[in-house]
């Protein structure tokens, strides 16, 4: 964990003095038929996505393998309350609130920029484990990649406008075009300030309790280049698990079953603290 700031910050004056404003949150879930004592999973969608993205396949699949599975829509996304002024801290707050409300210590699974939110949430909640799927950890290289792949959708975002993702950025060609269009039509917009913080935000504080972290993604992801994937994994002291041929949206793409099975297999083995 060489790149992360290792200093635990005890004084949190800003967070105490200006608590995040509560909003109504959408949480979708699927319960296993038989309670087997597995830790609950909390899926955190990336920017533009809502809990629906996980409700499509992953929630049911995780439940069918014995894991209680939940997905939250960050404020301003999916069925959660509108929040045009949301910040990264507000998103983090949403995740921590839902995680702490679960009956047992949860595994946080972040996708895309949701992985960045999860990395911040880990500093405010002792996750049992964390999974960063196709993580968009922010910084200017993220913007450069987006600009190269989708200049028309990305340019306005850099001058304060909304970011528009294109379906060819998100899905592989294996996914039927009708599905890709249907998913892309559900994509929402990110709050402007959060968008900026994605580029120029602060590094996450150290994770509480040093949970084990799994990083996975696709070498053919058009949002997260392989180098960024390797960098994210190195931060947590491992190498990424790769699923060649898949697009950025691992949970919606045609071969969605492979990554979720890999995540659940990893959890079944009960990884120990980093």
């Amino acid at each position: 964990m060489s790149a992360t700031n290792e200093r635990v910050r005890i004084l949190r004056g800003r967070e105490w003095a200006r608590p995040v404003r509560p909003v109504r949150r959408e949480v979708l879930g699927a319960a296993p038929e038989l309670e087997e004592g597995r830790p609950p999973l909390l899926f955190v969608p990336g920017f533009g996505h809502g809990a629906w993205a996980f409700a499509e396949h992953w929630l049911e699949h995780a439940a069918s393998r014995g894991f209680p599975a939940y997905a939250v829509s960050l404020r301003g996304h999916g069925g959660s309350e509108r929040a045009p002024e949301a910040t990264l801290r507000a998103y983090t707050h949403d995740v921590v609130q839902v995680a702490a409300g679960l009956p047992r210590q949860a595994v946080l699974v972040g996708h895309g920029a949701g992985a960045l939110v999860v990395s911040h949430a880990m500093a405010r909640y002792p996750a049992r484990a964390a999974v960063l799927a196709a993580p968009v950890m922010g910084g200017w290289s993220t913007a450069a990649t987006a600009l190269r792949r989708n200049p028309v959708g990305t340019l306005p975002a850099l001058v304060g406008g909304p970011l528009k993702l294109h379906r060819r950025q998100l899905f592989s060609r294996e996914l039927p075009d009708a599905d890709a269009r249907r998913y892309a039509a559900q994509l929402g917009r990110v709050a402007r300030r959060a968008q900026w913080q994605l580029l120029a935000g602060r590094e996450a504080e150290p994770a509480v309790g040093r949970p084990p972290v799994l990083v996975l993604g696709s070498p053919d992801d058009r949002v997260v280049p392989p180098a960024a994937l390797a960098r994210a994994a190195r931060r947590y002291g491992s190498a990424p698990l790769l699923f060649p041929g898949m697009g950025h949206d691992l949970m919606l793409d045609a071969r969605w079953r492979e990554p979720i099975d890999a995540i659940l297999d990893w959890l079944v083995k009960e990884p120990q603290r980093a």
Partner: peptide, 15 residues
């Protein structure tokens, strides 16, 4: 108030 009372890694519910 709540932000000063809760454990720093287990917030009380927003509600």
């Amino acid at each position: 108030s709540r932000p000063f009372t809760q454990f720093p890694d287990f917030p009380m519910p927003d509600s």
